[in-house]
Design a protein around this nucleic acid. Structure first.
Length: 421
RNA sequence: GGAAGCGUGCCAGAGCGGCCGAAUGGGACACACUGCUAAUGUGUUGUGCUCUUACCGGGCACCGAGGGUUCAAAUCCCUCCGCUUCCGCCA
């Protein structure tokens, strides 16, 4: 949720943000109307309640002969209070709906436009010139006995897979490396629950436009998370944190579940787009004025991980229309995939400013001791998908794969993964 | 899965249906006193919405959550959630 006070004070900025996102600027005016309406209704209700309290007190103290008359008036008032409260409920609901309809206000420097309007911030590494046939990650993974999508489909259906042998080890090595690096940098390692209550899902903003992306367990009214961001954000909901110093940083390792509802036929081969994968996710809480710097710090950590797996990548500044409702700005790192001759997303880091924390009521005390809404940020440090980039970029002509140095300890020191004969 | 009990402010812990935003104790903070520390005394000690808005101040709401009864609910009733204990079942 955006800051209502900010909308009142500076509606033009919010309208501009809406326009840059390709959203309706008039939603801002609907919000302002709903806000004014609610305030009018609430203050009317407050007055009635004040009257009722005074009258109620008088009833209690009245003499037996005065009592009936006062009681009659009080009864009438009670009915009016009830009506006023019904009106308040309606006004609150209307405000909440108008409030939810507006996405986070973008950072001023965010490129306007949609999915294809991103700005490339930098490009790192050389695109490898491969001799011989270029194998894609599935062919390589099958050759290594590392990825088995056929049995994944047999057991669980399309977009499921088994990682086995060096494939399983490669994932552990990769995610372990991510957690180890993050922990060394001061992030608190966390293994969170992956089933969460509706309010946790709602609070982090995943039940909005992406609600058809999430798995729901109807019998228990729980959701499977699509990212550790959800439990890590909800972790401190309804709390007041000490954010007087550095940001509070967590690094979570979790399985992630996505229905991939709108992506029929997209990336159907291999493990690029799957229903379940593992991810190491950074999550930071800080004061709003620290958020932009922290965002760049998260991006820097992502780049360190990409450097460790030695793949070419670029960093893009995601355009406003492609941000997602909670983010004010988002940077993606995309790795080069030789089989596709294209860059594909491996990481994504978002600055959610106070948007997410407001709904989850995550606060800190400012210098005056007053509670203020915190800022939250998140970023990817490694996922199952990274295996795709590792296999493809480090493939050798015979279908073997060189192991980046940083991952060798997790693979028994092996420098090259040889295909099974 | 069955049974019972509990859920109040930073913590502990009272609370007859009206005078309870809530006693009391502890902690924290401020001031005073003391050569320093400790002790002591006095005061402050919540959040949200809202009116006025520079400030002071005023109004309303909040006693796990949501409903209900009542002129009036922390206090009575219902539902849900959480915790504790006992029984059963099972990794």
């Amino acid at each position: 949720m955006i800051d209502l006070r900010f909308v009142r004070d500076d509606p033009d900025t919010v309208r501009a943000s809406q326009r840059a996102r390709g959203a309706d600027p008039a939603a801002v005016d609907r919000l302002l109307d709903a806000d004014a309406q609610r305030r009018a209704v609430v203050s009317a209700g407050d007055e009635l309640r004040a009257e009722q309290k005074a009258l109620g007190r008088a009833v209690g103290q009245a003499s037996p002969e005065d009592r009936p008359a006062l009681l009659a008036r009080a009864k009438d008032l009670a009915a009016r209070v009830k009506e006023a409260e019904a009106a308040e409920t309606r006004a609150n609901d209307a405000l909440a709906a108008a409030h939810k309809a507006i996405d986070n206000v973008i950072e001023a420097a965010t490129p306007p436009g949609g999915e294809t309007d991103f700005v490339v911030r930098k490009t790192v590494g050389e695109i490898p010139v491969l001799s011989g046939p270029v194998r894609d990650h599935l062919e390589l993974g099958e050759g290594l006995g590392a990825i088995d999508t056929e049995r994944g489909a047999k057991v669980s259906g399309a977009r499921f897979y088994f990682l086995r042998g060096v494939g399983a080890q490669l994932q552990w090595a990769l995610l372990n490396l991510a957690v180890t690096k993050a922990a060394a940098a001061g992030f608190i390692p966390v293994i969170p629950p992956v089933l969460v209550k509706p309010e946790s899902m709602e609070g982090t903003g995943f039940l909005g436009e992406h609600s058809d992306e999430v798995y729901r367990l109807e019998a228990d009214d729980l959701y499977l998370v699509g990212t550790a961001e959800v439990p890590l954000a909800a972790y401190h909901s309804d709390e007041i944190l000490d954010l007087s110093g550095d940001p509070v940083r967590y690094v979570g390792w979790s399985s992630c579940f996505r229905r991939e509802a709108g992506s029929y036929g997209k990336d159907t081969r291999g493990i690029i787009r799957v229903h379940q994968f593992d991810k190491v996710e950074m999550f930071a809480y800080c004061r709003p004025e620290q958020a932009a710097d922290e965002h760049l710090r998260l991006l820097a950590f992502e780049e360190q991980m990409l450097a460790a797996i030695e793949v070419p990548y670029r960093v893009i500044d995601v355009a406003a229309g492609d941000l997602g409702s909670s983010a004010a700005r988002k940077y993606d790192c995309e790795a080069w995939l030789p089989s596709q001759q294209a860059y594909r997303e491996l990481t994504s880091t978002s600055n959610c400013t106070t948007f997410q924390a407001r709904r989850l009521s995550i606060r800190y005390r400012d210098a005056d001791g007053k509670p203020q809404i915190a800022a939250t940020l998140n970023g990817t440090l490694a996922t199952t998908r990274w295996i795709v980039a590792i296999l493809e970029n480090h493939q050798l002509p015979d279908g073997a794969v060189r192991v980046p140095e940083a991952l060798r300890p997790g693979l028994g020191g092996r420098e090259v993964l040889e295909p099974a004969r």
